[in-house]
Design a protein around this nucleic acid. Structure first.
Length: 305
DNA sequence: AATGATGCCAACCGCCAATCA
DNA sequence: ATGATTGGCGGTTGGCATCAT
């Protein structure tokens, strides 16, 4: 394997490293604006840069790209990161795909330097998103946790699709088959985890305990995701992805789940920023109702095995 | 004012998966 | 089918800025 990394290493003698200068930025910008980036490997020489292609790509994707939002993260963005991290673990690129205009590197940095510490201060384990002292599990909890895993797979697929296509997704997605669920989940209602999230009747400890299903745990997340890469792309929320692509819509999460009830409270105390929570709740309800309608449509019905 | 500790973030590195020839 | 190439990802680091003593 000889990747961009090795490419950098092999020609280390003549290639520059370290912080980029304004001149280098201008060269890279000018070249990409005129020719597009095409092959990153050959770009540096064409653009007159003494950098490896990988360095150019990183500089472009993390800093120079015109559609990057910089600066302070909003409370809404923070919550979205935390909730997606609870589902996805350290899948920064997937999380970034759901936070329009933020780069995975920025989100990763933000998580590592701030959010992780804040959660720790709040008594929440940032790796598992569980309160430090917690116990108890049941078959039902395991099912829910597994459904959360399923939802995580869907989120990842959405992110992938959003990345892969700038075209209106409705047409493209209609040809993609929905994923086959794990065998033991087939009898369960379709994506009940979403309904649980929507239901204020479910005690918060319920989902919290679901997250403790030990057989599903991974080093970085409550959820083991080992099967995700082999899954076909779930395509339930195609319209949402399209809306996200076109209109920079952030995905909101309903404020009823255990994470929300903990986080919302803690954030209001911790950061002093309550925000328009009511409006956000309404917005979340609308989004999730829409999503539930989509996943209940024939296209997304899970096959019984 | 000096100095050490801590926070922050841009950039690098190594690995992996997809693609190509 | 296989090996080479490329792009992308996540973890880590280096260095500057800020804070605390």
């Amino acid at each position: 394997m000889v990747g961009e990394g090795s490419d950098c290493k092999d020609s280390m003698a003549k290639l520059k490293k370290g912080p980029w200068t304004r001149e280098e930025d201008q060269k890279l910008l000018a070249y990409i604006e005129e020719h597009g980036h095409g092959s990153w490997r050959t770009l540096p020489s064409k653009a007159g840069l003494q950098r490896c292609g990988k360095s150019c790509r990183l500089r472009w994707t993390n800093y120079l790209r015109p559609d990057i939002k910089r600066g302070k993260f909003s409370t809404h963005e923070e919550k979205t990161i935390i909730r997606l991290h609870a589902l996805l673990g350290n899948r920064w690129s997937v999380i970034a795909a759901h936070l329009s205009k933020r780069t995975d590197n920025e989100i990763k940095n933000y998580w590592n330097t701030r959010l992780k510490k804040r959660l720790t201060r709040m008594g929440i384990d940032p790796a598992t998103h569980k309160p430090k002292s917690n116990s108890g599990q049941s078959r039902q909890h395991a099912d829910l946790s597994h459904m959360a895993q399923w939802e995580a797979a869907r989120l990842e697929a959405e992110a992938r699709l959003a990345r892969e296509s700038k075209l209106p997704l409705l047409h493209k997605l209609s040809s993609v088959a929905p994923p086959a669920p794990p065998r033991h989940m087939a009898a369960l209602p379709c994506l009940d985890v979403l309904k649980v999230w929507q239901s204020s009747a479910i005690p918060s400890c319920f989902f919290r305990s679901a997250a403790s299903c030990s057989s599903l745990e991974s080093p970085t997340s409550t959820l083991n995701f080992s099967c995700s890469s082999s899954l076909p792309a779930p395509v339930a929320a195609n319209e949402i992805v399209a809306a996200e692509t076109e209109g920079n819509m952030d995905i909101s999460y309903p404020p009823y789940d255990v994470y929300s009830s903990n986080y919302d409270c803690a954030f209001s105390q911790d950061s002093g920023m309550r925000g328009d929570l009511v409006g956000e709740m309404e917005e979340s309800k609308v989004y999730w109702n829409h999503l539930l309608n989509l996943v209940s449509s024939p296209m997304m019905e899970l096959p019984t095995l």
